[in-house]
Computed example of a mutant assay.
Amino acid sequence: MATDHDGVRELLAAWAVGALLPGDEKAVPLHLAECESCAAEAERLRETVRLLGGPASGPRLNGAGGAAGGVLAAALRARPRVARVAPHAAPYAAAVAGLQALVREMEGRWATPVVHDWNAHATVAHLLAADEPLALRLGLDARVPASPVPGDTPWEDAWNARTADVIAHELTRAPEDTVAAWAAQAAELLATPEALDSVRAAHATTLMGLRLPVADHFLVRAFETWIHTDDLGRALGLPVPPPPEEHLGLLVRLAVRVLQLALSSAPPVLLAMAGAEPDAQWVLGSEDEPVQAELVLDPVDFCLLLGGRYEPDAVPRGATGDEGAVQRVLQTAAAMSWL
């Protein structure tokens, strides 16, 4: 039963969709009566669930709710009741739980086209491959036979070859076996010392062409897992909620840091996230010139743009100033996707 502030705060999404475990059903309302910040966050989450088609009156789920509410509730119920991961790994843990909930809706639908030339089965196989570089770097064993890729192959080519091999291998197996392999690898990643200890995750390593702290590589895994869960949800007609606000903020900040590197010599543009806290804005581009334009994006749309799910001209935005500078930011962001 959760009684401390942090413990209750982690259960607010479950409260909003009526997915609390019996031991927490009394503790959470008692805490909300005393804590103004948690009460405000709980009300925001309940309103979000209502808008997504979940329970419209009160936090309990009675019968079948909307698709998004049901998927979210199942994800929260599936969340492991074990020692908590460090904050940098929490978004990945949540994304894994969300996908585990969604795959329960896929029986008989594994051949549904999803993204690129992948069906639902191949999309999960791709995630098995995508998590593998971090798993191997942290000392875990591969779950798919090795690919015959020379060691000096450029990382993009090596990655394309590996993901194609993993997908081909997994398509010879039952979808349930692929899901089990992906879920087991994800669980092992979340049990590594680097997932549990922020100090252990502070050392930098290069994966997928990016030299980042291991902590940030966990955020990359969260980003991609959520993007493909959203792909699957769209293909199956099951709306998938975006990451919780706290997790989304971490993903946005990582994406901005990577984008800043790519735009270091470009005409500067002030980028701001709509509806976010006042400090959620950054100047992207050269430090030697005045700001040429201002660009405002919704944080979810920004992540989908970097995930390759928006064309630069199609992403909803507010912009003023030099349109060429704005387009350079949007095009660079879209071109960064390898998902």
Rank of each mutant, 00 (worst) to 15 (best):
D24M: 01
P239Q: 13
H5M: 05
W155A: 14
S37W: 02
G139A: 03
Q331D: 10
G318I: 00
H169L: 06
E25G: 00
D231L: 05
A27H: 09
Q327L: 14
L271R: 08
P150Y: 01
D131A: 12
T178C: 06
V28C: 05
L72Q: 10
P148D: 10
D230V: 14
A168K: 07
V291A: 06
N160G: 09
L261E: 15
R77Q: 12
L102P: 08
W159L: 08
C35H: 07
D141Q: 09
S264Q: 10
M106E: 14
T153W: 03
D6A: 14
V199T: 14
L261T: 13
G275M: 07
T163F: 12
V103N: 02
Q327D: 13
W226E: 09
G321M: 12
V214D: 05
A93D: 12
L134C: 10
A146L: 05
A111F: 03
A184C: 13
A191C: 10
R79Y: 12
H88T: 06
E294D: 08
R77T: 14
L61N: 04
T192A: 07
A280H: 00
R77L: 11
A142R: 02
P133H: 10
W226I: 03
Q100F: 00
L12A: 08
A262F: 02
E246A: 15
A125G: 10
G66E: 11
G308A: 12
A187H: 08
A255Q: 04
V49N: 02
D117L: 08
A14Q: 12
G66S: 06
E294A: 11
A235M: 11
A120N: 10
A19W: 10
G275A: 00
R46E: 13
E25W: 03
V214F: 13
P316V: 11
L251P: 03
V166S: 05
V114S: 01
A78H: 05
T332Y: 14
D313H: 15
V49D: 07
A73L: 09
D24Y: 03
V240S: 09
D279A: 00
L261M: 10
H203M: 06
D24W: 00
L297C: 07
R44W: 02
A39F: 09
R162H: 13
D165S: 15
I167E: 06
L171A: 04
